[in-house]
Simulated scan of single mutants.
Amino acid sequence: MTEDPFVAHRSLLFTVAYEMLGSAADAEDVLQETWLRWADVDRSQVHDPRAYLVRAVTRQALNRIRTLSRRREDYVGEWLPEPLLTHPDVADDVELAESVSIAMLTVLETLQPVERAVFVLREVFDMPYDEVAEAVGKTPVAVRQIARRARNHVAARQPRVSVSRSEHQAVVVRFVAALHTGRIQDLLEIMAPDVVLIADGGGFTAAAPAPLHGAELVATMLAGTDRAEVETTAVWLNGAPAIRMESDSGRAAVSLVIEKGRITRIYATSNPQKLTRLDKPTDLTR
C-alpha cells in the first residue's frame, strides 16, 4: 500500500510551519488543519502532492500568524521561539540547522508575515518563485521583490559568523562548567564583552523583562543564580549544541551564539508552555 503523501512529507510540513511560526504547538495545529483539508481533496487532480501540501501549510500558517500577532502583543517580557530537542544529524545540513536556530527564528520574527513565508519557502526550501507566488497569493514578480527585501533584512540582523560543530560543543562545555562554579571571572572569560542575554519566562517564571547587555551585567546575573539541585545537561536544540537545565522549580533551555570562541548571545527560555519538546527529538527536514 502506498504511503499517504501527507504522512510521507509530515516532517517537511512541520518544519515549514515551525519556521513560519516559531512555535511547535502552533505548527502542529496548522498540520492538523491541513490534514483535515487534505482528506477532502480529489487526489487525482493533485499532480505534485509535496508542492500542494507545502502551499496548503503555508496558507494555514499565514492565517495562524494573524492570531499569534495579537497574542504576542500581550506577552509578558521578551518572546523567544519554542526550543526543540533535535537529532545531532540536523547539523549535517548546515543551511537547515541555521534556518531553525533560535537566533534565526528570532530574526524571522521581525519580518512581515508574507516576507517570512517567502523567505522560508525560497531561501530555506528553494521553492521556485512561481510556486512561492501561488502559496502566498502574489505574482512571481512581486515575490522576487519581497524575497530580495527579506534577504536584505535578515542579512542585516542574523549572526555573521558560523563556527564548527566541535567549537560550538567546546564552548557549551566551558559555559556549563562556568555556570557550575558560579565564578564571575570564569563566565567573563567565555563571553564577548558585548554579549546579550535574552530571557523568556512568559510571566510564569522569573526572567529579565528586557535584554541584558554587556559581559559584566550578564555574568553577575548568571553568577547570582541559585545552582543548588540544578541538573545541567548538554543537548542538541534546534540543530546546535545547547543546554537543558532542570530543578525542582522547573526547567530551562539555553541556546548560544558563538563568535571567535566566545558567546555573543544567550537565549534562555523558561516558560513551561514552551518546554514540552525537550525530552523526545523532533524530526526536522527539508
Rank of each mutant, 00 (worst) to 15 (best):
T2Y: 11
P5Q: 06
V7M: 08
M20H: 08
L21D: 02
A25L: 09
E28Y: 12
L31R: 04
R43K: 15
V54I: 15
V54L: 07
R59N: 06
Q60C: 10
Q60D: 07
L68V: 10
L68N: 12
Y75S: 04
V76N: 08
E82I: 13
P83K: 12
P83W: 05
P88N: 04
V90N: 04
A91D: 09
A103F: 00
T106R: 14
V114L: 04
V118P: 02
E123A: 13
F125T: 05
D126P: 12
D130P: 11
P140L: 05
R151S: 11
R157G: 05
R157S: 10
S162H: 15
S164P: 12
S164I: 08
V173G: 07
R174H: 11
L179E: 06
R183A: 15
Q185S: 13
D186S: 09
L187F: 00
L188I: 09
I190A: 03
D194L: 01
G201E: 00
G202K: 08
F204A: 13
T205L: 10
G214F: 01
E216P: 01
M221T: 14
R227A: 15
A234S: 10
R244L: 13
G250E: 01
E259D: 07
E259I: 04
G261W: 00
S270Y: 05
L278M: 09
P281I: 07
R286D: 02
